[in-house]
Computed example of a mutant assay.
Amino acid sequence: MAEKEKKVGFVRSVFNEMKLVTWPSKKQLRKDTLVVIESSIIFAALFAVMDFGISKGIGLLIKK
Rank of each mutant, 00 (worst) to 15 (best):
L61S: 02
Q28I: 00
A45N: 07
F47T: 07
R12G: 12
L34C: 08
R30N: 15
F43E: 12
I42M: 15
E5G: 05
M1V: 10
V8G: 03
K4H: 11
S55P: 06
D32L: 05
D51T: 10
F15T: 14
S25V: 01
S39E: 08
I42K: 15
G59W: 02
E5F: 06
A48K: 00
V36Q: 08
K63S: 12
I58W: 03
V49A: 00
A2Q: 14
D51S: 10
K7W: 09
R12T: 14
I58Q: 03
L20Y: 13
F47S: 03
W23Y: 15
K63W: 09
K56S: 07
L60A: 04
S25R: 01
K6H: 15
A45I: 12
R30E: 15
V21G: 00
K19C: 04
T33N: 13
K63A: 14
G53W: 01
S13C: 12
I62A: 01
K56R: 08
K26V: 13
D51W: 08
G57K: 02
K19G: 06
V11D: 08
I41S: 01
N16H: 11
G53V: 02
K63I: 12
F10E: 14
E5A: 10
K7Y: 10
G53C: 01
L20I: 13
R12F: 13
I62D: 05
R12P: 06
K64H: 12
L61Q: 00
I62E: 04
I41V: 06
W23S: 11
V36E: 03
E17H: 14
E17R: 15
R12N: 08
K31A: 04
I62P: 01
F47P: 00
A48Y: 01
D32C: 02
K31N: 03
K31F: 04
P24E: 01
F10L: 11
A45H: 06
S25T: 02
K27A: 10
M1R: 07
F43N: 14
V11W: 09
K64C: 08
V35D: 05
M1P: 08
M50I: 11
A45R: 12
R12I: 11
D51F: 07
E3N: 08
A44V: 06
V11Y: 10
D51I: 07
V8S: 07
D51P: 06
K6T: 10
E3S: 07
A45W: 06
R30V: 12
K4C: 07
F47W: 03
M18I: 13
V49S: 01
G57V: 02
F43A: 14
K64F: 09
K64I: 06
V35N: 11
G9H: 05
G59Q: 02
E5K: 11
D51Q: 12
A48M: 03
V21I: 04
T22H: 13
K64L: 08
S13A: 10
N16W: 13
L46W: 04
K4P: 06
G59I: 01
L60D: 05
V14C: 02
A48F: 00
P24V: 00
F10G: 14
